[in-house]
Amino acid sequence: MPQATDRRSGSDFERVRALERSGLLDQPEDAALQRLVRLTATVMDTPIALISLIDQDRQWCLARHGLNQKQTPRAVSFCTHTIQQDTPLVVPDARQDPRFSNNPLVTSSPHIRFYAGCPLRGKRQHKLGTLCVIDRHTRTISQAQLQLLEDLSDIVNRDLIARHALLTHQNGLVAKSDLFSFVLTRELERAATTQTPLSLIALACDQHEDVCGVLGITNSLRWLLSICSICTDNSNDSDFIGLMDQRMIAVLLPDTNIQSALARAVAMRMALRHSSAAIDLPHGTASFSAMALEVQNRQIQASELLQLCEQKLKGLQANLGDQTASDCIH
């Protein structure tokens, strides 16, 4: 069966990483999305409608109507082909299409004949999946119907971007703790598979309680997010920043060894020291500590790793603070 894409390619690698960081994978069924796929099936007069996400090796259904399977291998996915183009993919009769004629989804259950799908894009325009409709009978689709499917996919797109915003702060730049933990788990798996380095930076203000006392709770969160913004300005595109507990900021650094991670941690601390984040307190100016860690233990769990980061950062702060240090987790 022809393959739609080389999943080792750089563009697909970045697309899958963007999907992981969207927070959409492996979410429980949602009533609003279920209504959208039911509406799509009704409008398009098809027995099956899906909101599918194309992961590295699987197609996973965020919402589905008329189909029992929650996921299928990516190798047999029609939607994999859809995300390779900018326009909708329409297959009137899969038995007559050489890309799909021997596909087990065509030759056996659910016996797909007709397929039409539109790409769904993430916040940075990566194609994360599709809104698609499926029929067990051959059929054609009018231009008006295709426009309706595109209109519905635009509604789904807006919903998915809004869901991403609920899992992040600051317009999607900073992940909340649950999303950060999920992404960290995926990057740990990737580093173990590819035998590439992976590092973290744990960073916090040494006078957090004093700052909260001066600014108050609401302004303290804005202040923390301004710190995250400065860290973002000193990060690479592949880095991922999370606010873990309204106190510790974690920066995930894929493909980064301890020397580079330490240099980045120093740069972040220096940038913070000379920014408006270093606010004046009754007993001096707010300072920051940063711990750079390279993860050499490829079996460690994300939750355990984050706990170790927090412990090492607190130890650094207890030793006067206002400094940068590094370590390896074996």
Rank of each mutant, 00 (worst) to 15 (best):
D97L: 07
D154S: 06
N68H: 04
A75P: 00
Y115A: 07
A4L: 14
T80H: 09
I141Y: 09
C61T: 02
V37I: 00
L188S: 09
L308A: 06
A63Y: 11
M1H: 07
D12G: 10
F182K: 09
F114P: 01
S238A: 14
D280T: 05
A165Y: 10
L313C: 03
S109M: 13
F78V: 04
R222T: 06
A263R: 14
C309L: 14
L316W: 13
S177H: 11
M244Q: 06
F240I: 02
Q143M: 15
M291C: 12
L252Q: 05
D280N: 04
I241D: 01
L313M: 07
A261Y: 07
S9G: 13
T130M: 06
T130Y: 08
V91D: 05
T87Y: 13
M291E: 05
R264H: 12
I249N: 05
N257S: 12
I161L: 11
D280V: 04
H111M: 09
T193K: 14
L225N: 01
D322Q: 04
T87P: 00
L320Q: 08
Q246E: 07
D210P: 00
T138G: 02
K314I: 11
E187A: 15
R8P: 00
T5L: 15
D210L: 14
P119L: 13
Q145V: 11
I217W: 11
G284F: 13
A175P: 00
S235G: 08
A31M: 09
L305K: 06
N68P: 00
D57K: 11
M44I: 04
A325D: 07
L128N: 02
I201E: 01
P2A: 14
D57S: 12
I155P: 00
R124M: 11
K176W: 08
L24T: 04
G321M: 09
L306G: 01
N157S: 08
G242P: 01
Q299L: 15
R298C: 04
V106P: 01
Q170N: 08
I279A: 05
A278E: 03
Q296Y: 12
A175N: 01
Q84F: 12
M291W: 13
T193G: 10
D57F: 06
A290Q: 00
P119Y: 14
I155S: 07
I83S: 08
D322G: 01
I329M: 10
P104N: 04
D327S: 14
H137K: 15
R7D: 12
A75V: 03
L36N: 03
R273K: 14
V211M: 08
Q125L: 14
